[in-house]
Design a protein around this nucleic acid. Structure first.
Lengths: 209, 209, 209, 209
DNA sequence: AATGAATGAGGTTTCATTCAT
DNA sequence: TATGAATGAAACCTCATTCAT
């Protein structure tokens, strides 16, 4: 009944251990920052010895990179727009914001620590941009194009539009981390508002005759 | 002709020294991050001795706080919308983005180092939110209201709108730090695009009869 | 046909394993030094697991002692002078140097690692002196005496002569490890020269009338 | 009366501190070996803090290199044969061995730790050979040639002779470290014996008619 | 007021050894 | 018997801070 090859069991154990360490580290990094978190802290939180950390990761820096890799492996990114085109454009925006919220709830801590380091680490920055930002923009770009082709939104310069949306989400994320209550508590309402504004514009409504 | 009181000269000298140290620190913090920058590095860059640093700042942490204080003293924030209301709403948005660009060029390094730490330092976060974000939102809010009152934009929920704009700028800033070429090189065109989109909306244009 | 008692087979297997580990260790110790060689390295080189090392040796230190024991078990030392006395004294010196060369080729790495540690480990030093140096000196002493008795060399203070010869060989060994090209490449010629010099002396040759 | 420039005082203080640390380190390295000596030990023995060590030396390895450099800066080497040629050849050998003894008493600990590492560290080995062994051989070579020219010793292949002498001294040094009582206690007598043997040879003395 | 050498607590990392499988 | 993941003590090194000059 031992129908698992020992190798596969071993691999799963190793991968579970890695995950256990990464999760502990990401949480602590988000709470106190990468540099204020000691390897001792991580070992304690992950319930392993400090030595064991180094059986799974070459260095503390590697641990941060591993966290970043997890972020870029997110199945989420691709799937989150995959429900097909049919919904109308306004709904699409709301959906995007909603999905993002879910992902933040799940991967927020990882993003937080990574983002903090990225801002001040040119090397990491480059890697992050290549592995996360560019793929994200490509996906978003394709979706926008599909909307345009479907006539749901007017033709526009997608590179600019993509940056608009991405910046918006990044900015919301930062505001959320900063503890802004509106973002935290009225996310749904705000999503509706944003979607509406972007769809209809801020210009005074022409008095329909 | 020594019409300056010795005290005021002394004060100015002290304040110049402080500024010299803060500038050096902010630059290094932005380049390598707060934690990877040693007090030795700062002393070298500011062309003073390490001991002197401690005559002007109680600790390295204090230095970061001083940088943050400089950011919140920026006259810029208030002035940048002060040209009065007359310009039309679309132009207002473009102006805002343009002004932001100028400020980033000037205060970018300070913001970069502070933002990085804020993401992972709850205490700093709170202070930053109170001293920088809230005042900024209030200013923006007032301006928006003025536009609404002037009939330049339609009535909308200002708290949401304010967060939209702020997030947008924060997000742009992060994308810029990340090295996104479009943001860096086509800022002017992109500003026009954004202003337009927000003003007119993304909905397909009704074929005017 | 199983004419070996299981015990003896087992013993031989154990002893072969020990030898396999010792050889790997000695090689690595000579290459990188005792302290820069990890038990992990040894396990890898000996093609066993780290755990297995500890089934055969109590500790890493024990491994070094085992290497030293191998050196003192060398049959070589005693045999190398055993060809009897007949050859003339000059030839005896050349033989000695030649034999030494062969032994170095074989046991060099072991000697190298042991010697390095001996220089800085008083305990080991004592043991090495007792187990290797003294027996070696006794052997050499007996041989010299035999030569003297045979009238092949003049009567001299053997304790001093023994130290002269031993030091010479030790010194040559160190020079060889240091990479001196003359020692490495012209060993044979040099042996002849040394033997000659010691036999005949460095004094100007009396012009034979 | 402060007739010393502050700079020169500072330099001397720094250089004294360096020496103080090097001496402590060399002593400990010789006693326990490089690897068994901790930076903590060194700091304690040199009566400075561990941090201070690193104000004077980049790393523990650098400390070993500094010790080696001191050995090669020895004025001794060149001076020790400088008394001119006049003394007879036998006396020259005795002098050489005597001088060596003095130098060992002074620099022995340094040599001990360096030699131990050299045996198992190829990089160090090369440097040591270039900086210490080769210059030493050149000096010795010149002296031998002078003796030959003066007719005090017969013509011989100096490269071989040089290696003979050097090996002899190296070997004696190792035997001394090993604690051999004859070398330690009867050095003078032994020197005489060696000088004699090498000068006159081991061949049975022809019965002078 | 300015200096920079000295400090030592504390960080990251290594590695000999153990032990459950 | 063989394995190799887990361990944790201890090593090397850094750096914010102090203080005598």
């Amino acid at each position: 009944l031992n129908n698992q090859s020992p190798d596969s069991r071993r691999e799963r154990r190793i991968s579970a251990r890695r995950r256990q360490i990464i999760d502990a580290a990401a949480r602590l990094f988000a709470e106190k920052g990468f540099h204020r978190t000691t390897t001792h802290d991580i070992a304690l939180a992950a319930d392993v010895s400090e030595g064991t950390l180094y059986n799974y990761f070459e260095s503390k820096d590697e641990l941060l990179l591993a966290i970043m890799d997890m972020l870029s492996d997110l199945p989420g990114l691709s799937e989150c727009y995959d429900d097909g085109v049919p919904v109308d454009a306004r709904e699409f925006l709301v959906d995007m914001l909603r999905t993002r919220r879910v992902m933040i709830d799940q991967y927020g801590p990882m993003l937080q620590s990574v983002l903090s380091e990225i801002l001040v680490n040119p090397e990491l920055r480059k890697q992050y941009y290549q592995e996360l930002v560019i793929p994200g923009m490509l996906l978003l770009s394709a979706h926008l194009q599909a909307r345009i082709d479907a006539g749901q939104i007017r033709s526009l310069q997608t590179p600019f539009a993509v940056r608009l949306l991405l910046s918006l989400m990044l900015g919301f994320y930062v505001l959320e981390v900063l503890g802004d209550p509106i973002i935290q508590l009225q996310w749904e309402e705000m999503s509706q508002f944003i979607a509406n504004l972007i769809y209809e514009g801020a210009a005074p409504r022409p008095v329909s005759a």
